[in-house]
């Protein structure tokens, strides 16, 4: 190992599970030599998913944006950071004045969503723009959960999350946490956690049209036809109320 090669302990930036990773980097050639799970991370305990392994390729991907780009008709041209900031400020101002706040949409995703620059300045920018056009990946798959939580618990962010490491009965509906790592549950190493439920005498039930990777390690798998899950839930409520 030359002295340019150094080992760095980091959190994987891709999702909120933030698995601990060990990155071997060659500072001479500015290349990533390898990414491994960190066995000393108390949360992820050496687990990482294929996205973390892919960090090496992401870093060296020639298509990765390294400088701001501006669209010119059908083409894109690179520009400097100062110029990009000035142009964004000019054009955001003009848009606000000419077309109002909702002419600007704000899109937030990971990794920026859990990085300091967004946490510090994102809310300020959103408030300054006064737009209600605010989107995240959650726009696709979490908003119904916010709506139901508002009705059931009084607020969108009061979310009932499974206490994976203590529960004795887990029902997974239309979810594949062994692959997704549970998203909002934020629990890296999901397969081990589900297996632990069974090891301590608990039960895991998966309800899904597809026999998923999670279904394969469950005690029971129930197939439902897509689009009929509301009927299943009504039937379960009916049994709870009657019996």
């Amino acid at each position: 190992m030359t002295e340019d090669v150094r080992l760095h302990h980091r959190s994987c930036p891709f999702c909120e599970a933030a698995c601990g990773i060990r990155v071997q980097a060659d500072h001479g050639s500015r290349t990533i030599l390898g990414v491994r799970g960190d066995p000393e991370d108390p949360f992820s305990r050496s687990f990482i998913c294929p996205k973390s392994y892919g960090l090496t390729q992401l870093h060296s991907d020639p298509d990765r944006l390294r400088r701001p780009v501006r669209r010119r008709g059908k083409d894109w041209e690179e520009m400097g950071w100062d110029e990009a900031m000035d142009e964004a400020a000019d054009r955001l101002g003009t848009l606000l004045k000419t077309h109002g706040p909702n002419s600007i949409a704000y899109y937030l995703g990971n990794p920026s969503g859990h990085k300091a620059p967004f946490l510090l300045y994102g809310p300020l920018l959103i408030r300054a723009l006064q737009t209600n056009q605010f989107y995240t990946p959650g726009t696709l798959d979490q908003i119904p959960k916010y709506v139901s939580a508002s009705y059931m618990f009084g607020g969108p962010t009061i979310q009932p999350l499974a206490d994976l490491d203590r529960t004795s009965y887990l029902i997974v509906i239309g979810n594949n946490p062994v692959v997704s790592q549970g998203s909002m549950m934020v629990a890296p190493g999901m397969k081990r956690r589900l297996e632990d439920i069974r090891k301590r005498g608990g039960r895991v039930v998966v309800i899904d049209p597809r026999r998923t990777e999670t279904a394969q390690i469950a005690d029971e798998y129930i197939a439902v036809r897509p689009g009929t899950d509301a009927y299943l839930l009504f039937a379960m409520v009916d049994v709870l109320a009657r019996e």
Binding site: T139, L140, D141, I143, P144, Y146, V147, G174, P226, G227, T228
Partner: peptide, 13 residues
């Protein structure tokens, strides 16, 4: 759309 949440229906198509 799922009307209460204005979310696009992405599954069960």
């Amino acid at each position: 759309l799922d009307v209460p949440s204005a979310t696009t229906v992405l599954n069960g198509v």
